[in-house]
Amino acid sequence: MTSHSESPVAPADPGHRASVPTRRTQRERTAQAEQALLDAAETLFAERGIDQTSLADVGQLAGYSRGLVSHHFGSRAALVERLAERIQNRFVTELADADLIDTDMDAVEVLAQFVEDYLTAMVGHAQTGRAFLVMWGAAIPADAALRPVFAIDDARFRLGTQTLLRAGQANGTVADSVDQEATAAVVVGMVRGIAAQYLIAPKAFDLPTAARTCRQFLRNSLSPQRDDRPT
């Protein structure tokens, strides 16, 4: 059995200044443990689902005890919330910061590129995408503890889309007739639905073609008619 105690150290060469390993701070050790636990939870949720994963399972896969999982997160619901936040930030931070985009950008092209990138990321990191969609689905029941978590995350996603559409209407790259709120809901549903279908049955359709079709759909639906563009 491997021991974690220190190994004997040979006497140092008087002419050689030995390097002293940098000790990690408590904060660094805590952050490392939290990320390892979240990684383990992501793996297990993607493989088994939430209900079939216990805190003990998460701790075991991460190499820690169940007690440490409880110490870091308190409950499985809190663990799920933290993981959902991490994954959502990974996928939608770019769109949430859409108000920082240059005012002269073509908002339709920015949104179309984001949709394509989102789909690529969701399936390119299939385990992460699957874990996210498992958690998102678990928020649907009326009494689900996750409902508030995903309601906030989805609202953030829609708000980023609305902000981008508003900027596009201001600079003439999005038609004035476009309803920002309804379109944002359609965009979220489009990317989540396509990603879910692909993760369930990846051979059912060609994802790059679906992504290009989304881009064309957004151009046709959101761009102003040629006669309406500012001169």
Rank of each mutant, 00 (worst) to 15 (best):
S54Q: 03
M190V: 05
P202S: 01
E85L: 05
A78Y: 04
I101N: 02
S7Y: 03
G59M: 05
R212G: 13
V191A: 10
R66Y: 11
E94H: 09
S75Q: 02
E181G: 10
V80P: 05
C214M: 05
R24T: 10
A170F: 00
A121G: 12
P230D: 06
F91G: 07
F217L: 15
L218D: 12
P224W: 04
V174R: 11
T53E: 09
F217Y: 14
G15W: 09
A33L: 01
R229K: 13
A10P: 00
D143P: 01
Q197I: 01
A185F: 04
P14C: 05
S5E: 15
R215V: 10
R82Y: 02
L68V: 01
P8S: 07
I140V: 14
P14G: 05
L38M: 09
A121H: 03
N171W: 02
A112Q: 05
F114H: 07
S223W: 00
A40G: 05
L61S: 12
A126M: 02
A144L: 04
A131E: 09
G124W: 03
E94T: 10
R229N: 14
Q32D: 15
F217Q: 04
E116S: 07
V20H: 06
V115Q: 10
P202Y: 02
T30H: 11
R76Y: 05
S65M: 01
P141Q: 08
T43I: 12
A185N: 00
T128M: 07
G172Y: 00
G67P: 08
S3H: 01
L133R: 06
A151V: 00
E47D: 13
R76A: 13
R90G: 15
A12N: 01
R212C: 10
P202R: 04
N171F: 04
Y118S: 13
A107C: 07
C214S: 13
A33P: 07
M122I: 02
T213R: 14
V123C: 15
E85G: 13
V69D: 09
G49N: 00
D176S: 12
G137Q: 12
E81N: 07
V110E: 13
A144T: 00
A33S: 05
D97T: 00
L146Y: 06
A41T: 03
V186I: 15
T103C: 04
L111G: 08
E94M: 11
G15P: 08
V58N: 02
L133Y: 04
T2V: 08
F157Y: 11
G74F: 07
A196I: 08
G160D: 01
D154I: 04
A41F: 05
T120Q: 14
A182N: 04
E28A: 12
A184Q: 10
C214Y: 06
E109Q: 14
T53P: 03
L61A: 08
D154S: 13
G59E: 02
V188W: 08
K203N: 15
S65Q: 13
D179W: 09
L111I: 09
S7R: 11
P21R: 02
A107W: 08
G137L: 11
T22L: 14
R23V: 12
T93D: 15
R156V: 04
R76K: 15
D97H: 13
